[in-house]
Design a binder for these strands. Structure first.
Length: 292
DNA sequence: GTCCAGGCAAGCA
DNA sequence: TGCTTGCATGGA
């Protein structure tokens, strides 16, 4: 990207470190970004595509020639309206040494505001898959069935595609969930705006009535698609973290959800991302217990 | 060959 | 209600 011109996206979208931007885009809250060149990231959402990097002052910058989204759309996707420092301040890291360590590891990470339908589709494809494999599956959905390069197919399109064709794209048993959910959503074209008006419990319950959507996927859609920051998705990594570091080894996921709601409070989703990235990448190991 | 991955739903006691 | 199992596929 030598010689390319770069512009600041929005004064509030700032990353303290390169690692914070990398964790945000490649860490597993979304599956549609790649490191296109060293420290330059290319990603797609809705009909938008953007090439971004972290500027010298930490501000998020985009390359206009390599971006087909208006600045306002990029800003919205990076949740410019959300004050993550204030969210972080609400978390109990001052009295919780595990959270403090996770926060130190993932500090400065932001929660993206993904299109709700895309978050739902991507997480429907996610069960018992590695992050890289989810990226591959969503890529092939866009390439094969999308209306344009890098654009994911609409639910209407997905409803018209035979389940067997979805299986052929590598979705496996998830093909039935995508197919049946697509048929349900294609029937109610206004589900997205309606859902964004709902409270967290209402939205979560509505999502869980869709085929293949359980508590974990519903919570991911609430957190990453609807910006409902009290949502705390409990996946295998979080179960591991809570078992190893909070002494909740035999707890059921629903019980972990209740614990998180009380312990982490209204910004639980941000704590979840700190813990998720830290346990996954080894950031919760105590400094003197790491093998070196 | 074996194990496991950002789960969910159905079957069973 | 709570526990176990099957589900597809690819990578380590």
């Amino acid at each position: 990207m030598k010689g390319a011109s770069w512009r600041t996206v929005h004064p509030r979208i700032n990353f303290a470190t390169e690692a914070a931007l990398r964790l945000t885009l490649l860490g597993g809250q979304c599956f549609r970004w790649t490191e296109f060149a060293p420290r330059v990231y290319q990603g797609h959402w809705a009909e938008c595509g953007a090439t971004v990097r972290r500027g010298n002052d930490g501000a998020l910058e985009y390359s206009p020639p390599a971006t087909n989204a208006p600045e306002s759309r990029i800003a919205a996707y990076f949740a410019a309206e959300t004050d993550f420092a204030a969210l972080d301040d609400r978390l109990p890291w001052r009295s919780d040494p595990v959270l403090a360590r996770a926060r130190g590891f993932a500090r400065g990470l932001r929660l993206l505001r993904q299109p709700v339908g895309e978050a739902l589709l991507c997480y429907l494809c996610s069960s018992t898959k590695r992050i890289e494999q989810i990226r591959q599956i969503t890529d092939s959905l866009a390439k094969t069935l999308g209306p344009a390069a890098f654009v994911l197919p609409t639910w209407k399109t997905l409803a018209s595609v035979p389940e067997a064709d979805l299986r052929a794209l590598g979705l496996g048993y998830r093909a039935r969930y995508v197919h049946e959910t697509a048929i349900r959503l294609a029937d109610s074209p206004n589900w997205e705006p309606a859902l964004s008006q709902q409270s967290y419990p209402e939205a979560r319950a509505w999502l869980m009535r869709l085929p293949g959507v359980g508590p974990k996927i519903a919570d991911c859609v609430c957190l990453f698609g609807l910006g409902l920051y009290e949502s705390f998705p409990v996946d295998t990594w979080i179960l591991q973290a809570m078992g190893k570091h909070y002494g909740l080894g035999k707890w059921h996921p629903d019980q972990i959800t209740c614990f998180a709601r009380v312990h982490f409070g209204s910004a639980a989703g941000l704590a979840q991302q700190y813990l998720f990235e830290a346990i996954r990448l080894g950031g919760l190991r105590k400094p003197n217990s790491a093998s070196r």
